[in-house]
Design a protein around this nucleic acid. Structure first.
Lengths: 218, 218
DNA sequence: TTGTGTATTATACAATCGTAAAATAATGAT
DNA sequence: ATCATTATTTTACGATTGTATAATACACAA
C-alpha cells in the first residue's frame, strides 16, 4: 500500500500572496460563524486547512490578520457595488437605484457578511488601527453616493444638501441591511429595497429636507 | 497604626439583588470599553470592586451574566425612551418627535451604549439565547412605533402601511445612531435628528410609499 | 456574646489562548 | 543530481481563560 518510489507530498507550497488570501478568507468565515471570541489562530488555520504556525509566518500576528481581513472585506464589498453600478445605466438615478438593488441582493445579503461587519464595527471602538481602516472604507463609500446625489441635483435642478442626503441614504441602507440580516423574519429584502427606492423617489421629487432649511442656522 | 479594638471590614455584604445589579453594570461598562474579548470574569469583578469568585456565586456563568446584561440594558433603554414619551405631548406626532429627540440625546448618545449594543448584535448571530432576547427587545421597540404611526394615520386620514413605515423608521434611526456613534466626526447628533424629523414630515404629508402600492403585489 | 447562614474571598486546576523557536520538506536553481 | 531557499509543520512555553472547591468572615438572630 505504501508507495515506494512515488511519494505523496505532506503539504503543497503556495505563493505568499495566495496563502495570505486563503487565510484572510478563512478568517472572514470564522468571524461570521464563531464571532470575534471564537476566531482563534487554530480555528482559522483549521478552516484554511493549514497548520496554526503558518498564520504567524504570513502575518505579524492575530491582530494583523484581523485588520487585513477588514481591508479585504471592504474592498470586496466595494468591488461588488462597483460592478453593479458599472452594469447599470449611467445616469444618476439609475446608479442610485442600482446601489439600492445590489445592497439587498447577493452577495450583500449573505448573513455571514453582517457577522464579519459587526465584529469590525465593534473593534472600531477600541482599536485605533481598525478605526482608521473604518474611516477610509466609509469615506469612499459615502463619497461616491454624495457625488451621485450631487449630479442628480444638477440634472434635475434640485436644491439638496448632497452631503446630508448621502448621510441619510447610507444610514437608511445600513439600518435596513443590519436589521434584515439580524432577523430575516421581520421583513424581506424586497421590502427593504422598496423602502429605499421610496426614499429615492422622494429625493427626486425634491422632498428631502425641503422645509427644514432654517433648522440648520437655528 | 493597626487598630486594636476597631476592626475594618475586609468587605461588606450586600443583598443578592444589589450585587447582581452591580455586576451587570460593571459588565456593561467592560463591554463598552474593552469589547467582548476583553470582558472576562476578572475584568468585570475588578470593575465592580469584588473578587472574581463572586461572579459565579450570583450567576450561572459568564454566559449567563452577558445574557442578563442584555436584558438589563434593553430595559434601561426602554425606560429612558418611555420617560421621554411620557413627558411629551400625548399626540401621535409629538410622540414620534419625542422618540426622535430622545434617540439623539443623552443617555442614548453615550458611545458606550453602542459598544454594548454591538456586542449583543454580534452575539445574536451565534447565540440562540441572545437571539431570543433580541427578538423580544426589538418586538416591543417596534410595536410601540407601529402603534404610534397607526394612530397618526387615523388622526390625519393617511393611507400608510404602519408595519412597513415602522420598519423604515427604526432602520433610519438605528442607522443614524449607529454611524454617528461609530464616528461622531462625520455628522452631528443634531443633523441626525434633523434627518429623522424630515422623515416624519414626509410621513405626515402622506409621502411614504405613496406611489409604490403596486410594487407590493408585483 | 455566641452561634448560624451565606455572601465573599482565596486558591487551584484543566483548557486554551497567542507567540516563539526549531525541525522538516517542498520547490526552483545550479 | 545536489544544493539552497523558505514555506510549512511541529513542538513548546508562559499567560490567561472559565470554572470548581474550600476557606474565610460579615451580618444577623438568639
Amino acid at each position: 500500500m505504501t508507495p515506494l518510489t512515488d511519494k505523496a507530498p505532506k503539504f503543497t507550497r503556495d505563493l505568499p500572496e495566495a496563502r495570505r488570501k486563503q487565510l484572510i478568507e478563512a478568517t472572514a468565515r470564522s468571524l461570521a460563524r464563531h464571532g470575534m471570541e471564537g476566531t482563534t489562530v487554530r480555528v482559522v488555520a483549521a478552516e484554511a486547512g493549514v497548520s496554526p504556525g503558518l498564520v504567524r509566518h504570513h502575518f505579524a500576528g492575530m491582530h494583523d490578520l484581523i485588520a487585513e481581513t477588514y481591508r479585504w472585506t471592504g474592498k470586496e464589498v466595494d468591488r461588488a457595488l462597483r460592478a453593479s453600478l458599472a452594469a447599470a445605466e449611467q445616469t444618476p438615478e439609475a446608479q442610485l437605484r442600482a446601489f439600492v438593488d445590489s445592497s439587498f441582493s447577493e452577495p450583500m445579503l449573505d448573513t455571514d457578511l453582517l457577522g464579519v461587519w459587526l465584529t469590525f464595527w465593534s473593534l472600531t471602538r477600541t482599536d485605533p488601527e481598525i478605526h482608521a481602516i473604518h474611516g477610509k472604507v466609509y469615506a469612499g463609500y459615502r463619497r461616491r453616493l454624495e457625488e451621485l446625489i450631487r449630479e442628480l441635483a444638477v440634472e434635475r435642478k434640485l436644491k439638496v444638501d448632497a452631503r446630508v442626503a448621502s448621510l441619510a441614504f447610507t444610514a437608511l441602507l445600513d439600518g435596513l441591511w443590519l436589521e434584515h440580516c439580524l432577523d430575516a423574519s421581520t421583513f424581506t429584502a424586497r421590502e427593504a429595497a422598496m423602502i429605499a427606492h421610496d426614499w429615492v423617489d422622494n429625493l427626486i421629487a425634491g422632498r428631502f429636507l425641503a422645509g427644514a432649511k432654517q433648522a440648520l442656522s437655528a
